[in-house]
């Protein structure tokens, strides 16, 4: 009995374990998972950038690299991309929103810049308040239909294409597109409804 307690306290549960547990509904593990992934994403971003001497990294690249890095470390039993991304994408959402909020306060040398992989040169101004409200709406949507919120995380925040998402989730691309449309309708409704008439 004592041994088990020690193990739970001292052992750093692996990500794959946490995902397993979170999938089974363990909220505590889900929370731990979130924290760990957030830290991992951060750490990895910095490491990637340091390696290349850059100050910015795209969200898509970051989440890819994180998966690879973790999969490499944990080996064969590391969950497949689909299961990993379901959680990592949610974390990325948090990371991005925090990032947008703090962007103006970034000190050089400390933090990094998150970008998207688009090639247009036009600047995009994001409203972190709207993003926060969207995040709440997404969490609510997740309670009703988690696949929809996942797809928004994957597409809108992480920048994956429909094809990639279809692959990850084991769905047809048509289905992914349809879910995307539904999610958009839901979100649009949620966000606009709060506005004064």
């Amino acid at each position: 009995m004592r041994r088990v307690l020690d193990a739970m306290q001292t052992a750093d549960p692996s990500i794959s374990t946490l995902i397993d547990l979170a999938e089974q509904g363990d909220e505590v593990s889900a929370g731990k998972l979130f924290t760990q992934l957030y830290a991992e994403l951060h750490r990895l971003a910095k490491r990637q950038l340091a390696r290349q001497g850059e100050i910015s990294i795209s969200a898509t690249t970051l989440i890819h690299e994180t998966y690879l890095d973790m999969a490499e470390q944990e080996g064969q039993s590391f969950p497949d991309r689909g299961r990993f991304m379901a959680y990592a994408a949610r974390v990325m959402r948090g990371l991005i929103i925090d990032h947008v909020r703090n962007r103006l306060a970034i000190k050089r040398g400390g933090a990094f810049e998150l970008t998207s992989l688009t090639t247009d040169v036009g600047e995009v101004t994001s409203d972190d308040q709207e993003l926060t409200r969207m995040s709440h709406a997404l969490d609510e949507l997740a309670r009703v239909d988690s696949s929809l919120s996942q797809i928004v995380d994957l597409k809108f925040f992480c920048g994956f294409s429909f094809g990639e998402i279809a692959n990850m989730k084991g769905l047809s691309e048509r289905t992914v597109q349809r879910k995307w449309e539904k999610a958009r309708i839901y979100l649009h409704r949620s966000l606009r409804a709060d506005l004064p008439l």
Binding site: S56, I57, T115, S116, T118, D120, V121, E123, V124
Partner: peptide, 10 residues
């Protein structure tokens, strides 16, 4: 559009 700025130069 992504909420993040374009990594054009990036």
């Amino acid at each position: 559009r992504s909420p993040l700025p374009a990594g054009g130069a990036r």
